[in-house]
Amino acid sequence: MIWQLDIILLPLVVICAVAAITVRDLFSATVLLGAFSFLMCMLWTEMGAVDVAFTEAAVGAGVSTAFFIAAVFVTTRRTKD
């Protein structure tokens, strides 16, 4: 546990999570969700859970971001609500 890294990472995680659900552009939301996944990956590495962090980096930041981008391409880019 390195509390200095915690102080840097935790506000960034909260900012990315809140921004991903409030932004109007779906593509921006996807990119923000990828950034959230990557920050969570760094947080887990810092807490010592390397295997969970590896899964988060491969699945959360890598594959699911590509899935979301492919899904955004077949829908409209801006939300209606």
Binding site: V50, D51, A58, V59, G62
Partner: peptide, 24 residues
């Protein structure tokens, strides 16, 4: 990652995801 999955972090699921990401 697949070949060192039983001795170090990583494994079949993560390695498969990385291989799929290269195809994407």
């Amino acid at each position: 990652v697949i070949a060192h999955g039983h001795g170090s972090p990583g494994g079949g699921f993560q390695g498969g995801c990385i291989l799929a990401a290269s195809f994407m």
